[in-house]
Each structure stands twice: as structure tokens, then as C-alpha cells.
């Protein structure tokens, strides 16, 4: 995957994720509409590759107003990842050389890997994650399960231990998926299944779309390292 192709794919996936997020604010109070209708229009332009350099810059400026409006991210980690992808794309457009563009896009790929690895690292250090209690707490009293029926999952301790360790091992081992193109594809399929499950169980739909937008960067970085090693 060439750098240009991976960047263009990232632009398209980010535009789709921003369109999805913006539509969710169309029925919001007018001050929110004033921020998200322009974001929707700019995202359409980004989707079709119209003046991407300036559209990305305009989206960054708009993102700063959105941050101010909500005094932080509206949707926690997914907004932060969205901002990271957007800022990297904007910076890439203004980099003086191809090498610098690679550094910025590589930074996005590394952050994607770290997003899984550090999440796994903080969990494995916590005994309540290792024995399944943390996930039991998530189902029992956290604000995240999308229905009361899901709270009954707290009554399946063995399942929760298996789920906890599956999440921990997947997150910690994700960097190893970079070893070959095939393992990376397998890693990303598992990762998107993980995000899909989180979206269904906890309503984190925005995480699914925005993390997908960062996947081209890791596919490009893996090939970049792989090809350099072969030469």
C-alpha cells in the first residue's frame, strides 16, 4: 500500500466517521447544529477529495470550537482519536518532504498500536481485571451497558474471566501482529470485532468507525517496515 493511497483511504474513512457523528447532532440544540452542520459539509468535501489540504485545516479549526463548546471531548476516547487522525492528516498536507509525511503518518500508526497495548498493560497490572471482577463491575453498576438485561452478565463469573483475559491478551499482543501482513490482517479483524462488540454492548459506536479510520496507517507502516527489511 503506497503512502498516498493509505492517506487517501484514511481521509475517506475519517470523512465517513465525521459524517456519521455530525448527523447525530442534527437534532441537537441550535448552537450544536451550528458546529456540526459545517462539519458535515466539510466531511463531504473531504470524502470526495476536494481541496483536502484546506478542508482538513478548516476541520481542525472547527474541532477547536467543538472542544471549547463542550469544554473537552463530547465522546471521550473516540473524539480524541478523531482529533489525532485529523491533526495528522492536516500536518501531512503541510509537510515539506515525503519523508516528513511518512514520520507524521507513522506517528498515527504507532499511536494506534499504543492505544491497544497500553489499554492491555493497565488492565493486566490490575488484579481485579485478572480475576474478572473489573468486567463484572462494568456490567453490574457502570453507566455503560445499553440495557438492564445486559447487567445479568455479572452472574456469569467464568465467562467474565474468559472475556477479561481475551481482551487483555488481544490488547497486549496486538503489536506482535505487525510481524507479517497476514498476522496484521488477522489482528485488525479481531480488533474490529472487539470494537463491534463494544458498540453493541456499551453503545460505543463512534469508537468503531474512528478506529477503522486509523487502520490504513498501520497497514502502510507494516508494509514500509516489511519492504525495507526485505531489501
Amino acid at each position: 500500500m503506497s503512502l498516498d493511497y493509505a492517506i487517501r483511504l484514511t481521509e475517506i474513512l475519517l470523512a465517513l466517521a465525521f459524517i456519521q457523528q455530525s448527523i447525530e447532532h442534527f437534532r441537537a440544540p441550535r448552537d450544536e447544529q451550528r458546529l456540526f452542520i459545517p462539519r458535515f459539509i466539510l466531511s463531504i468535501l473531504l470524502l470526495f477529495g476536494f481541496q483536502t489540504q484546506w478542508v482538513c485545516l478548516a476541520l481542525v479549526i472547527l474541532a477547536l470550537f467543538i472542544l471549547r463548546r463542550f469544554q473537552g471531548p463530547y465522546n471521550g476516547g473516540s473524539d480524541r482519536m478523531g482529533l489525532l487522525v485529523l491533526c495528522c492528516l492536516s500536518l501531512i498536507n503541510f509537510m515539506p518532504s515525503s519523508l516528513w509525511r511518512e514520520y507524521v503518518f507513522g506517528y498515527l500508526a504507532i499511536q494506534l498500536v499504543l492505544s491497544y497495548f497500553f489499554s492491555g498493560w493497565v488492565k493486566i497490572k490490575n488484579p481485579e481485571w485478572r480475576n474478572g471482577q473489573a468486567l463484572r463491575d462494568v456490567f453490574q453498576f457502570s453507566a455503560y451497558p445499553v440495557s438492564e438485561a445486559l447487567r445479568t452478565w455479572m452472574n456469569w463469573p467464568r465467562l467474565l474471566v474468559v472475556m477479561s483475559w481475551s481482551v487483555i491478551l488481544f490488547e497486549l499482543l496486538f503489536p506482535l501482529s505487525l510481524m507479517t501482513p497476514t498476522t496484521l490482517i488477522i489482528g485488525l479483524v479481531i480488533a474490529s470485532t472487539f470494537h463491534l462488540a463494544n458498540a453493541c454492548l456499551f453503545g460505543f459506536n463512534r469508537f468503531f468507525w474512528i478506529w477503522m479510520a486509523a487502520y490504513p496507517s498501520i497497514l502502510w507502516l507494516q508494509q514500509r517496515i516489511f519492504i525495507v527489511e526485505q531489501l
Binding site: 447532532h25 463542550f70 445499553v146 458498540a199 453493541c200 459506536n205
Partner: peptide, 26 residues
């Protein structure tokens, strides 16, 4: 308050439009 039950179909629909839940997360 969250609903008592949510069907798989509703969960999948919320992949594309989940305004009310995302406002609840906010």
C-alpha cells in the same frame, strides 16, 4: 434510565445512529 431489553437489530442500527445514547455518555 436504560431500556430493559435491546434487540440485536436495535444494537446494530445504533452503529449508524446513536445520538441519544452518545448524549447520555456525555
Amino acid at each position: 434510565p436504560r431500556p430493559a431489553h435491546l434487540s440485536i437489530g436495535s444494537m446494530l442500527k445504533r452503529m449508524f445512529y446513536n445520538a441519544r445514547w452518545n448524549e447520555a455518555l456525555f
